[in-house]
Design a protein around this nucleic acid. Structure first.
Lengths: 249, 249
DNA sequence: AAACAATTTGCAATATATTGCAATATTTGA
DNA sequence: TCAAATATTGCAATATATTGCAAATTGTTT
């Protein structure tokens, strides 16, 4: 019997019974429970069901297509994400900005980390579904359909209510004198609100973005605590930021 | 035997059995498994089937993606959704509750309708991505991972800022004297906030839920404007609501 | 805390895929 | 038609995937 046949059987039974159990499937399919478990795991990765202890249940309807949107071409950002992971500890309150870099961090987060995450990004909230111990506080506001983040005064007021340990800010341009800037007015305004309530601000940026500026101001560069780049961070480009007291890694 | 003949045989068997296996085809066609494998590979490149380890399966098999899954218990809710669609007109401000019924409505919405939607449901906001002319205002708050809606005082305050034309409320229990009730405290509290700011309240409910009650109070029954059911609505069960001045359809 | 059930991990046995190659069949072009 | 080029086929060696088992770990219940 083909693996894909088993998949069909599992999904069918799930549709009719609203649940499946390892023991039962093992009998029906005439394979070991281990194999059934692996099948379920694979189906869960495809978002076709939700794996639970002892079996599986139908996947809640929802925005699971966000997971597919993570491009695979971006090793640089994954490098950045891995470095940034080191800053996150249990019991912190962390603000996640929208954008690909914070998304990759969320994706790479250990499944059992205990955090309070405040964000305005649908994809990030969506990915954090599986992290049992992560409490997600989502900022309301007007939904930008292109980037799937909320913006507007409601969003900003929402952030104003918190005091976060860390703010993870996605790709912005960073310039020694011109400060941190972004390409979109509304989103830059929201970023302002984020940095205003965060003790530590970690900017995630590829080296190309260093020394550049865009149209909309977020905050002065020296408000940043750390800049995480995809390089080692000891190059000359970085020295100017280091001299400002910013950690560059 | 010509290669094209083999192709036909393979596709035929695939059509009847929903699967083919290398060993079996090798026997039938009297060629080596290698050849069958190469045939399948070629057919797969033409998109006529999906090659899998040990054989092949039809290209887009059984109930897979989401839209197909409006299947088992949801025909009733789809009926409700279709009826409710009639209430929505261009330029209205509409509150969408969480739950499957409002989700189905959102899914069935004409792509070019012009609405302002206020909601606390991720799946609904997500589905409305494709509707260019629908502005989505998303209520912030604490994210419930089970149902993917936000709850809490932030969520309630968010709704309090609006005056909606219509509130589409998902499955609740409705009882003539005990009022509208829900199974979850937090979500019921949010529903309260929704109904408080809506001119018209449309409850979406299967007839089984009529005359029943659950643990958490939402609002008095006579605050409802309309009850949309999966039946014709002229049965005796409905009379009591009609007498209260509620439209039952 | 003990007892039990489920999961994870590493491993070995087996099944299937891939690749390169040689033998045969088929097509092409003069 | 014939010879050369091309495609197809089967085979063998090697690589990869799948499966079931067992030990170690984690989660749940009593």
């Amino acid at each position: 019997m083909l693996k894909e046949e088993r998949f069909q059987v599992i999904l069918n039974q799930l549709n009719t019974d609203q649940k499946v159990q390892l023991a039962g499937l093992s009998n029906i399919l005439q394979v070991s429970e281990d194999t059934v478990r692996r099948d379920i795991k694979e189906l869960a990765e495809q978002g076709l069901l939700k794996s639970v202890r002892g079996g599986a249940i139908p996947h809640s309807p929802g925005p699971h297509h966000f997971k597919d949107r993570i491009g695979y071409g971006n090793e640089k950002k994954q490098i950045i994400a891995n470095k940034a992971l080191g800053f996150l500890k249990d019991d912190q309150v962390v603000i996640f900005d929208g954008g690909t870099s914070p998304l990759l961090i969320a994706q790479s987060l250990p499944k059992d980390i205990r955090l309070t995450v405040v964000t305005n990004s649908f994809p990030i909230a969506s990915i954090l579904e599986e992290h049992e111990k992560v409490e997600v506080l989502f900022a309301g506001g007007r939904l930008m359909k292109k980037s799937f983040v909320t913006v507007g005064s409601d969003t900003m007021h929402f952030f104003a209510k918190f005091r976060a340990d860390i703010c993870l800010m996605g790709i912005c341009s960073i310039h020694p004198e011109l400060g941190v800037t972004g390409p979109d007015y509304e989103e830059s305004e929201v970023k302002k609100a984020m940095v205003d309530v965060s003790k530590e601000i970690i900017a995630l940026s590829t080296v190309e973005k260093l020394g550049t500026a865009e149209g909309f101001y977020v905050c002065p560069t020296d408000q940043l605590t750390t800049i995480v780049t995809d390089q080692t961070g000891d190059s000359d480009d970085c020295k100017v930021y280091r001299d400002m007291g910013i950690h560059v890694i």
